[in-house]
Amino acid sequence: MEQGKGRRFPRDTEEVRTKPRERERSGRNWRVTIAKIVLVPILLFFSLVIGLTIGYGVVGHKPTAEVFDLGTYKHMWDLLFANT
């Protein structure tokens, strides 16, 4: 069985050495990077709001408008840390 003794590896050939550098390719992807930085927090915020409305309104059988009321979260805070 021949295991390639005496053969040159692809990293030693000229084909691999003539590849473009990473620095040259990363210059045109700045739009994608900016889009990720801006879109990810926006999508996380909207998924939080949607999750709160579904969890409080549908699963909890409460009025959905109470999700956006600050008094609701003050009440939950008081319930959680009443004995501390």
Rank of each mutant, 00 (worst) to 15 (best):
L70T: 03
D69V: 11
R28L: 06
R25W: 03
A65R: 15
K62W: 02
R23S: 14
F9Y: 15
D78G: 04
V67D: 00
H61M: 09
P20F: 07
V67H: 00
T84D: 14
K19R: 14
S47L: 14
L80P: 00
G4I: 02
A35M: 02
G27V: 06
E24V: 06
V40C: 01
G51L: 04
K74Y: 06
S26T: 07
M76H: 15
Y56P: 00
K62N: 15
L48C: 12
L52F: 08
E66Y: 12
P63M: 06
T53S: 05
I54S: 14
G55K: 02
L70Y: 07
G60E: 05
Y73H: 14
V49Y: 04
I42T: 13
L48E: 08
L70R: 06
A35G: 03
F81R: 08
H75L: 12
I42N: 04
R8V: 02
I37F: 04
V32Y: 06
I34Q: 09
F9D: 13
R8M: 06
K36P: 00
I50C: 08
M1R: 09
A65F: 10
G51W: 01
P41Y: 01
L52M: 11
K62Q: 15
R31N: 09
V40K: 05
E24K: 07
E22Y: 15
L39P: 02
P41D: 01
K19S: 07
D69L: 06
R21P: 03
V59L: 12
R17G: 11
N83E: 13
D12C: 05
H61D: 14
D12A: 10
R21S: 10
G55I: 02
R25I: 05
F81I: 09
I50E: 08
M76K: 15
T72M: 04
T84R: 14
G4Y: 00
N29D: 03
H75D: 09
F45G: 00
L44P: 00
E15K: 04
T64P: 01
F45T: 05
F46L: 10
L52A: 03
F9A: 13
L48Y: 14
G6C: 04
K19L: 15
K5W: 10
K5G: 00
K36A: 12
I34Y: 08
M1A: 12
A82D: 12
G6D: 05
D78C: 05
T64I: 14
E24S: 15
E22K: 12
W30L: 04
G51C: 03
H61R: 09
T33P: 00
V49H: 02
L48W: 12
V32D: 10
R21W: 08
V40I: 11
F81D: 06
Y73E: 06
K5H: 09
F9E: 14
N83V: 13
K19Y: 13
V38P: 01
E15V: 10
K62L: 08
R7V: 14
L48Q: 10
N29W: 01
E2Q: 15
T33K: 08
A65C: 09
T72Y: 03
I37H: 01
G57Y: 00
P41C: 00
F46D: 06
I37Y: 02
V59R: 08
G51S: 09
E22T: 10
N83R: 14
K5L: 12
G4V: 02
D69A: 11
L39E: 13
K5T: 04
A82C: 11
R25C: 01
R8L: 07
R23N: 13
R28G: 12
L52S: 01
F9L: 11
R17N: 09
P10I: 01
E22R: 13
Q3T: 12
T13K: 06
